[in-house]
Amino acid sequence: MFLTPEIIAIYTLNIIFLFFSIFAFIISINIVMHWNVNRTDERQYGLEKKSILVATIIKFIFILKLPLFIFFVFTANKISGVITGAMCAAGVVNSISFGLWLFVFKILNLFIFGFWIALHNMDTKDEQLSLTKLKFSIFIVAFMLLVIEIIYEISFFSSLNIDKIVSCCGTLFSVASSSSFSFIFNIPSSIAIGFFYLIFSLLVVFSFLKNEPLFLVINIIFFITALISLILFFGTYIYELPTHHCPYCFLQQEYYYVGYLLYITLFIGTFSGISGSILSMLNRKNRKDFYKKSLLFNSIYVAIVTAYPIVYYIKNGVWL
């Protein structure tokens, strides 16, 4: 158990989130049960007012969660200096059995909360408020996920053990490891890269076809293949080391924090693609500019990761 300033900050914010989201949760249950646009009584009127409070709370949480995620990685990187054997956030995160799940939930919640806000913006433009019930049902699920994430996060920091020697990212992300990542390394990297570029070209094609379901699926696949190919292939070029596959180390200063740029562009690209297509499927009138946005950020991501091997080849004349 640590008592570092960063962890106290994260705890404090989590408690604030929990407090407000419980508030919002109770209201959403009420709304889902009693919402009826056609009624004009006191209760419906009150629910309409309360729904605005919930939306405000969710916006507040989401806007803070975005930088807080980066801050969490920052903190994990800092703690890695204290924990024996850890070189970067990977060692810290994996020193606890559910560390990886914490990460998965964090990313999932970012997607869901972001999507919720997009849905809310669309709903408020609709005079019939037809999506309101759906919106609050989604929040009830999102609340559960948020609570799980907060419980995970608090128990994560309180069970960190300074005395334990953890494996460093060099061993975690290697062929020989038995960690949760090792299945990735059974994929030959040439196939992974081929697949990555294939998916990206499909993404480009679909964005011109403007077909929402296809675009949604391709964005999800692109997100996953991007992460796998980053670990398998592109990461080694960022480090210029054939054996180092860690997806956290390039968040550190030595690599000019390039990881933040990569992850942020990837997130914006796939997020706007996924949420935009779902919203368009729900409401035909939705604006179609998400294709452009998604394509732009995904292309930036691809351009950056592609630049690393090419620059390496130009400088050294060989592939890793």
Partner: peptide
């Protein structure tokens, strides 16, 4: 940068959180 981040998270969200319900 991390210290600035830390200061930010420890102060501004608390203030904003305090006004959500009253302003609603």
């Amino acid at each position: 940068l991390q210290t600035i981040f830390l200061l930010f998270f420890l102060t501004i969200p608390i203030y904003i959180a305090a006004i959500i319900i009253p302003s609603w």
